[in-house]
Design a protein around this nucleic acid. Sequence first.
DNA 1: TAGTGGTCTAGACCACCAA
DNA 2: TGGTGGTCTAGACCACTAT
Lengths: 233, 233
Amino acid sequence: MTSPSRMTFRAINEEITQCIGDRMWEPGGLIPSERALAVEFGVARGTVNRALQELARAGLVERKRRTCTRVVLHPVRGARIAIPLVAQEIAASGATYRYRLLLRAERAASACDADRLGIEPGATLLHVRCLHYSDDRRYQLEDRLINPAIASDTLQESFEKEGPNEWLVAVAPFSRAEFTLSCRLAKRRGGTLLEIDPKAPVFIGERRTWLLARPITAVRMLHPHTHRLMTTL
Amino acid sequence: MTSPSRMTFRAINEEITQCIGDRMWEPGGLIPSERALAVEFGVARGTVNRALQELARAGLVERKRRTCTRVVLHPVRGARIAIPLVAQEIAASGATYRYRLLLRAERAASACDADRLGIEPGATLLHVRCLHYSDDRRYQLEDRLINPAIASDTLQESFEKEGPNEWLVAVAPFSRAEFTLSCRLAKRRGGTLLEIDPKAPVFIGERRTWLLARPITAVRMLHPHTHRLMTTL
DNA sequence: TAGTGGTCTAGACCACCAA
DNA sequence: TGGTGGTCTAGACCACTAT
């Protein structure tokens, strides 16, 4: 039991993690109540609460609404991987970046668009397609739908010199995002635009973002199958 | 301004998000201090603090230690995606799970193994290959190297009834992990074992874990290309 | 009814940064 | 030196669950 002067919620966090790691508290079993732990550690309940909230977020414990239970997870939690959002950022790690606009269209949302972006069918949207090059090699094909309602000057943007990402980050913050990763054969139009052998696979990342309930943008990013997404943690 | 009776930190969170979205507070600019916001919203500072901590975690604002600054992010943050580790967990969401062991071998590490797992060539390792089924459909092919040094009874494990994951989570906590995601054509042995058309792509996840500096396990997970990896945040 | 986690409060101390 | 975010405290109310 440490007591450097007063225990911080981080210390408590570690202490609890230790107990779980040492199997002092069994996987799937209850752990003492916040009030009990507060007494044991000699801190206020709020401090224990915060430590446990973090542990819950990290996936080490499960907390049940108003039940006396707090359970330690038996199965392991997923770890996390960071997706670099801006192709420019990636290219910035050594290679020279180049950008080319392929398509820019305002149109009424088809049923498919509406589903993808999360707006009403028939509403106006902006469709942008562009290529990101790394040292003159095609690095990413970006196909993006933008909700014009996010800013008054959306429809004035040409995206000729700069990609939509650069504009969006300056104009449209988001509070929620959803990611999907997958792969498929390149034969359809995306692969062609990437100049990939149609029989080779492409690596696909999709991202949708919202500001509160309002959809901002939906983007599909195609990479050659040589693409690797790596992270530590 | 909402006041359902008393403002919760979630309401404040939304209120602030709204302000940022409406560009009432400019990207890159300061926002009022916690104390000021507390007065404005008519709540305790702790409540504002919690709301802002969450917004910072979400990447909407940047907080500088003891500087009067709280800045709205200009560049976009990298977002994170959670990888579900245990096939069992995924299958647990509706489908019935089945497991089949294909290979279990102790052997001296080849140069390739050593590189993959991070141990000395020639050291003993455990090689396990198995299949995870979801409702009798092949869901994942798992190919795993295990460092026997992590536990005294590693080489006693048969893995016949239960996958290595279940055993590992109970026995070998890790402090560091590295992930790689990619895809390729199925033609090589992995694809065959998944019973996939050799011309179809497979989705590949790789994970390596360490406890401090000691390698624990390296696993390669192959999925049919229909696999989707999704996350919110 | 007793106990729980979720949340808010009002107040406090700290270490630091800018002036 | 005054303002800031980071943190802790002691106490409180709520809605709920298990008994």
